[in-house]
C-alpha cells in the first residue's frame, strides 16, 4: 500500500500557500511525534520542512505531496535530533556533565499522566527507533514503506523496530507483535 494512501492526504494544492494551509497541522503533528512531544524541536522541523517545500514546490509532484512532506518531516526530524543531541551533549559536558534534559518541566505538567509516560518512553528510544516505532504504531506503515521513506534498508528497519519494541517492553509497555 502506498504511503500517501495510508496518510489520507487531500487533493493536490495549486500553490504553496494552499499546500501550507492544508498540511500545516499535519506536518506539526508528525514533527511532534517524531520529536517525542518536544514543541521547540517540532516547530524547527516543521519550519525547515515548509522551507524545502517552498523551494521545491514548482518541480514537485503535488499529487503525492502528503507522502513527500511525511518523508521530509521524518528525515528533518532525524537530522535535527542528531544535531540537537550533539549540541546538548557538548553543553552538558561543558557545564554539568549530565545528559541533556528531557522535555521542559512546565511542558510535562500540562500533559496527562499517560501522555507523559508515552513521551518519556519515546524520549528513551534512540531517534531512529522512535521514528520507526511511530511510523509503525501510528500510521501502520509496513517495514518496506518505512525503509523507503527513510531511505534505509528493510533489514535495518526491521532491526530498529524490533529493538524499539524490546525497549518499550522493558519499560512495561505492551507492544504487540511486529507488523
Amino acid at each position: 500500500m502506498a504511503v500517501s494512501a495510508q496518510l489520507d492526504v487531500d487533493a493536490a494544492p495549486a500553490s504553496f500557500e494552499l499546500a501550507y494551509r492544508q498540511f500545516r497541522a499535519r506536518v506539526l503533528g508528525w514533527a511532534l511525534r517524531f520529536c517525542a512531544g518536544r514543541a521547540d524541536l517540532a516547530e524547527d522541523v516543521a519550519h525547515d520542512t515548509f522551507l524545502k517545500l517552498h523551494r521545491d514546490f514548482a518541480r514537485l509532484d503535488t499529487d503525492d505531496l502528503g507522502a513527500w512532506l511525511y518523508r521530509v518531516t521524518a528525515n528533518e526530524a532525524l537530522g535535527r535530533l542528531r544535531r540537537e543531541r550533539s549540541f546538548s551533549a557538548k553543553l552538558a559536558r561543558l557545564f554539568s556533565g549530565a545528559e541533556a534534559a528531557a522535555p521542559a518541566a512546565d511542558h510535562d505538567f500540562e500533559r496527562r499522566e499517560e501522555s507523559l509516560l508515552v513521551e518519556r518512553a519515546l524520549t528513551a528510544l534512540p531517534d531512529k527507533e522512535r521514528v520507526v516505532v511511530c511510523m509503525w504504531a501510528l500510521d501502520g506503515l509496513a517495514q518496506r514503506d518505512i525503509a523507503r521513506t527513510l531511505a534505509l534498508s528493510e533489514g535495518y528497519v526491521s532491526k530498529l523496530l524490533a529493538r524499539g519494541q524490546e525497549r518499550l517492553r522493558a519499560r512495561g509497555w505492551e507492544v504487540g507483535d511486529d507488523a
Partner: peptide, 21 residues
C-alpha cells in the same frame, strides 16, 4: 499491569495535533 503502547501513543498523538492547531 501492562499498558497498550499503541493505544496510548494514539491518544498522545491526538493531543499533539490539537497543540499543532
Amino acid at each position: 499491569m501492562t499498558r497498550d503502547f499503541r493505544q496510548a501513543l494514539k491518544r498522545a498523538d491526538a493531543a499533539w495535533r490539537d497543540e499543532a492547531h
